[in-house]
């Protein structure tokens, strides 16, 4: 299954990129985060992140589908 990930702020810095496409067996965002955290050395525990799929916030245990665009959002600091 191919999924696209977007990275922002310190996660983009750590990954060295703003986006990537991965061939992954992860069934949920929770499983996908474990995979990309190990690949890129992300330090955030999943509990500190929000997850968006295809432009909307979702639960971390929602099933993923081929072609999904997933974003793990670190704590925000606008304003």
């Amino acid at each position: 299954m191919n999924v696209k990930l977007l990275y922002f702020a310190s996660l983009a810095d750590r990954a060295g990129r703003g986006a990537e496409t991965r061939d992954s067996a992860a069934r949920t965002p929770r499983e996908l985060y474990a995979e990309v955290a190990a690949a890129h050395g992300f330090a955030f525990p999943l509990e500190r992140l929000r997850v968006a799929v295809n432009g909307a916030f979702v639960d971390v245990d929602r099933p993923l589908a081929d072609g999904d665009e997933i974003v793990f959002l670190p704590p925000v600091s606008g304003g």
């Binding site: 922002f8 702020a9 310190s10 929000r50 959002l73 670190p74 925000v76 600091s77 606008g78 304003g79």
Partner: peptide, 11 residues
């Protein structure tokens, strides 16, 4: 709410 919820980050 904007500061708490909107996905914007400050560097």
């Amino acid at each position: 709410e904007v500061k708490r919820r909107v996905p914007i980050w400050k560097n």
